[in-house]
């Protein structure tokens, strides 16, 4: 009798756990749908009055007179993310190759915590570092080098800060990729008389090329969505930037800077939620594409 009671208790508990797990699963699967539909709902107010393409390609940003042109912000976002990726790509690739193919044990033991820590630093601290170090360096050294007299708050400052932020993220993916190449492939190339660098260049990089592309795609989506650190150093001037020494005003910064007043101006909140929606869709797109590349290349092999 006691045994049976015990069993009933056990199975009841099993059922309870199961129900909770199922509920949790359902809730988490609803989150992306809710995110998307919430943002669409909010931005529909603006979209019912103005056309989407007009908003996207107009550079008139005058919330008080109901003009919401996203063009300057989208271009700024592109500038900052692309430049940061240009900085991060060679550094990540070279470091990943160094750490997986050449480095001595002590370098690995040193760099592992360095990368981990870099990945864990909050974005406000990166932003503060940008204000304290990068902005003055650009204003005092890099700017004058190109004959420019600038404050330092610029696309370049945003891109440098951003590149340091996405480096640990991309680097971890790349290291993982390089580690999973079979040693025999490397041995094969070496035994055919290739130098180590030739092996890297002709065989290893080629072997994981789709993975490398997708790592940078994921890095790009990271860069696109990063808010606070970029906002702190990028200048936040509403215009279409034409070079890396000019200030910019990326999309996430637009949302973050104006939340305070968005309820006091008609359609302003709708415009900002549309900005969030665009951000969400762009980031999803990059994520999706990157993962698709991986899946496709796996099928091929």
């Amino acid at each position: 009798m006691r045994l049976r009671n015990f069993n009933i208790g056990r199975h009841l508990r099993d059922r309870l756990h199961y129900s909770w797990m199922l509920l949790v699963l359902a809730i988490t699967m609803i989150v992306p749908v809710a995110l998307l539909s919430g943002l669409i709902y909010k931005s529909s107010f603006l979209l019912s009055e103005q056309s989407f393409f007009q908003i996207l390609f107009s550079n008139q940003w005058k919330p008080l007179s109901g003009k919401f042109g996203f063009y300057p912000f989208i271009i700024s976002s592109l500038w900052v993310s692309v430049v940061s990726l240009l900085i991060a790509v060679p550094i990540c690739l070279l470091t990943a190759i160094h750490l997986t193919q050449y480095a001595k044990r002590w370098v690995l033991n040193l760099m592992h915590p360095v990368i981990d820590l870099l990945a864990g630093i909050p974005s406000v601290i990166f932003g503060m570092w940008g204000i304290l170090v990068i902005v003055p360096v650009i204003s005092n050294y890099i700017g004058p080098l190109f004959g420019k007299n600038i404050s330092g708050y610029s696309i370049l400052a945003g891109a440098i800060v951003l590149s340091i932020m996405i480096i640990p993220f991309i680097l971890n993916i790349l290291i993982e990729l390089f580690r999973h190449i079979p040693t025999e492939l490397k041995e094969t190339s070496l035994s055919l008389g290739a130098t180590q660098w030739q092996t890297v260049k002709f065989v290893l990089v080629k072997k994981i090329f789709p993975g490398i592309v997708s790592a940078f795609g994921l890095g790009m989506s990271r860069a696109f969505g990063e808010t606070i650190a970029v906002l702190m150093v990028v200048g936040n001037v509403v215009h279409v930037p034409k070079g890396i020494f000019q200030p910019g005003y990326p999309l996430p910064a637009l949302i973050a800077n104006n939340y305070g007043e968005m309820l006091s101006i008609p359609l302003y909140d709708s415009a900002l939620m549309l900005a969030a929606l665009i951000l969400f869709v762009i980031v999803l797109f990059f994520n999706f594409l990157s993962r698709l590349i991986i899946v496709k290349s796996n099928i091929h092999n």
């Binding site: 025999e184 492939l185 041995e187 190339s189 002709f202 065989v203 080629k206 072997k207």
Partner: peptide, 9 residues
């Protein structure tokens, strides 16, 4: 090698 490892080309 034990298994063939064709180069990715």
């Amino acid at each position: 090698a034990q298994r063939p490892y064709p180069l990715p080309m």
